[in-house]
Structure formats: C-alpha cells, structure tokens
Simulated scan of single mutants.
Amino acid sequence: MTEAKRPVVLILGAGGVGLSLAGALAGVARVAVACRPRHAATVRRDGLVMEGVWGDRIVREIACIAGPEEAPSAPDLVIITAKGFDTRAICEEYAAVLRGSTVASLQNGIGNEEIIAEYAGTVIGGTVTTNFSVVGDGHVKAKSQSSPMVLGLWSGPDDESLQRLVALIRSAGILVEAVNDIRSAKWSKSLLNLSVNPICALLSIPVGKAADLRLRSVIEHIVSETFAVMEAGGVRTAWPSAKDYLDYLFSVQVPDFATAYPSMYYDIQAGRKTEIDLLNGYVAGQGERLGIQTPYNRCIADLIRFREIDGK
C-alpha cells in the first residue's frame, strides 16, 4: 500500500493504549497521535519502543502533535483512547476535527460514546482487554491480551466505517471482532473493571488477591447491584445472572490477570484522577435514575474519590 493510499488515523490520548495502538497501526496507516511533550520528544528523536504481545520493535512512522492546529484536517478515522473523565474536554478541543468524522472510543467505563456522539458523525464503541503499561517516555508494553478487541456501531448511519476499522486493525496483526450490540459489550467489559479494579486500587493488591474469601462478599454485592441496574435499563450480556458472571469472574478473568495491577491502582499511587465516575459511580447514578438501591457501588465510588483527593 502506497503512503498516499494509506488511511489517515488520528489518536487522541497517548497513554499505554493510545501509544501502543499508534505503534501497531503505523505499519498500515498514516498515524498522528496527540502526545504529552515528554513522549513526543522521545518518539521524534528515538522512535516509539514497543514490547509485548503486540510485537517487539521500534516504530518511527508516527507524527506526534501538540494540539488541534497540528492535527490532520480531515482524518479518515479518529480514535479516542484518553481517560474517560477527559472525554468532553478533548471533544471540545478537537470539535472542528470531529465534526462529521467517524470517531471510535477505546476507553474504559460507560458513557463516553454518549458524549462523543454530540460532536461526531458516526460513533464506534470499543473494548480492549489487553493489559498495557507505559515503561518510560516513548516506551510501552502490551503485557497480555485475554480476548480480542471488540468494536461495534454506537450511533450514526455509517456501518461501512466499522467494517473498515475492523479490517484496518486486523491488518495490523491485532485480534479484533465486530459485534451487533456494542452496548452489551461495553457493560460486559466494565463488569471486570467495576467489580475488581476499585478494590485492588484501595487495598494496593494485584487482581489475583481479589479472589480472597474476605473480599468476595463485597464483590458479589457490587455485581448484583450492577445486574439489577442493567436489567432495568434493558442491557443484556452473555451472563444471564449475577451468579453466572461471578462464576466467570473468579474462574477465568481473575486468574487471567492474577499478577496485574489495574490502571486505577496506578492512578491512585500517582495521585491522578480515576475513571470511577464511569464505572461504579455511573452504576450508582443510573440506579438513582431508575429507582434501584446501589449502596455498595456508591460506597466504593466514594472511597475512591476520597483516595483521589487525599492520596495515601
């Protein structure tokens, strides 16, 4: 494929997910990524160092940008990988670029796509179950991938954009699949994040420790409340009941990520804001709207918010 025919992809959010995706897609697309100055300087000088399940290599074919004035004027695709609490601010900043564009969200939590849909023409929702880390400036590692990336049309008329995105990501060697009900997929992915991540962040433990019998009751209540909210909201997942999901959580997901610390843990340790308002906080908010009691989700969200402010 010649350089002129390669699709132009703009990635907004240069953490572990965004930089890894930029590096993977650089071989099949012309990629621009909004980078922090420290990452941008290193990538421009030395290239992006990638390690892990997405390949070990140095990638130099990435354009690092500092703001919308440096962004491609008409990208074929925009992918937002930023933290969910920054979604609206990013959409406001890049509103002129997003207007009428196809925008994909590869972000944790629930609710990002609703915000993006206010600015974009076609919105594609997505989930990623790969464990990423930023090793250093311009250096990322994809530690493990327990299942394929999932993408689905959230809003807008352009289903062809979804098929093109899936084909592009697959051509970069990344496992990916398209689904008809991306809302179900987003909630399904969030179940792991809201049931385990806050507890690991609060207690400074890896995911495997969440299987401790002394923690299971709390996790069971969080999941049961979430399933009640999903049922009231008409959301269905692959697990018919909270018990079915809990069986899967402790037999498959927790062992798969046993030695990993969730991103929320690193956020707390670094004194950064977390995505709790798009996880347990979102469940609590939807529960209030639907008349469903969610004391465990509300409590865990308040505890994380306290840690965000008061740190260790």
Rank of each mutant, 00 (worst) to 15 (best):
Gly121Cys: 03
Thr81Val: 06
Ser133Asn: 10
Cys91Asp: 12
Thr130Phe: 05
Ala40Thr: 08
Ala29Thr: 11
Ile79Ala: 01
Val135Arg: 13
Asp86Trp: 12
Ile90Gly: 05
Ala82Arg: 00
Phe85Thr: 09
Ser101Asp: 09
Ala29Lys: 08
Gly13Ala: 01
Glu51Trp: 00
Ile58Cys: 13
Thr81Met: 09
Gly109Asp: 10
Tyr94Asn: 08
Val49His: 15
Ile90Trp: 08
Gly136Glu: 14
Gly121Ala: 04
Asp86Ile: 01
Glu92Leu: 14
Gly100Gln: 11
Val135Ile: 14
Gly136Thr: 05
His139Gly: 05
Val97Glu: 07
Pro72Asn: 01
Ile124Asn: 07
Ala14Val: 10
Pro68Ile: 02
Glu93Val: 04
Ala40Ile: 09
Ala34His: 15
Val140Gln: 05
Gly18Tyr: 06
Ser133Leu: 13
Ile90Tyr: 04
Gly136Pro: 12
Thr122Ile: 01
Leu48His: 03
Arg6Leu: 14
Ser133Ile: 09
Thr87Phe: 00
Gly27Ala: 13
Ser73Ala: 15
Arg30Lys: 15
Ala66Tyr: 06
Arg60Glu: 15
Val49Arg: 15
Val31Trp: 10
Asp137Ile: 09
Ser105His: 04
Pro75Tyr: 09
Ala22Trp: 11
Tyr119Ile: 06
Ser101Asn: 14
Cys64Phe: 00
Gly16Ile: 02
Leu10Phe: 06
Ile79Asn: 00
Leu25Ile: 07
Gly111Pro: 08
Ala24Phe: 02
